[in-house]
Simulated assay, not measured.
Amino acid sequence: MTARQEDGQIRIEVRDHDPGFPPDLLPRASDRCTQSDRARTTAGTGLGLAITAAIARAAGGNYSAANHPDGGTVVWITLPAIWT
């Protein structure tokens, strides 16, 4: 997990070292109740990324996910950097 300031925003990024998302799942990974077929044998509802994306957008930020070139998945949110 990393966090850094980038172009007036804070970027929070999480990477795992699992096999990554199937390519056809990436465009809809943050849809509610979406799981890959291999995840259906484990506990979970497919809501985690949907909630993460909704919180980021509600705070004026954004969400994205990709497969890392070295394996695994990278998920990140960007939020406005607000300094008081």
Rank of each mutant, 00 (worst) to 15 (best):
I55S: 02
A81M: 15
N62S: 07
A3H: 10
G61P: 02
A66P: 13
H68D: 14
I51G: 07
R40Q: 14
R15L: 09
H68V: 15
A53M: 09
T52C: 10
E6H: 10
G61W: 00
G48N: 00
L79G: 07
I51H: 12
D31Q: 13
V74E: 12
H17M: 15
T78G: 00
G48Y: 00
D31I: 11
D31M: 11
R40T: 14
A66M: 15
D7E: 08
C33P: 00
L47S: 07
W76V: 01
D16N: 00
G72I: 05
C33A: 11
D7Y: 06
P19A: 12
P22M: 05
P69C: 05
I77M: 08
G8A: 08
T34F: 02
A50S: 03
P80L: 08
S64M: 12
L47R: 05
Y63P: 07
G46Q: 06
R57A: 03
F21Y: 03
N62M: 12
M1A: 09
R40P: 13
A58P: 02
G8S: 07
A65W: 08
G72S: 01
A43V: 10
T2F: 14
M1V: 12
L26V: 07
D24G: 10
G48K: 02
A3Y: 09
F21D: 04
G46L: 04
L47H: 06
D24V: 04
Q35H: 06
T2P: 14
F21I: 02
W76A: 00
A58K: 04
G46C: 00
I12F: 01
V74W: 07
G72N: 08
T52Y: 07
Q9F: 11
I12H: 02
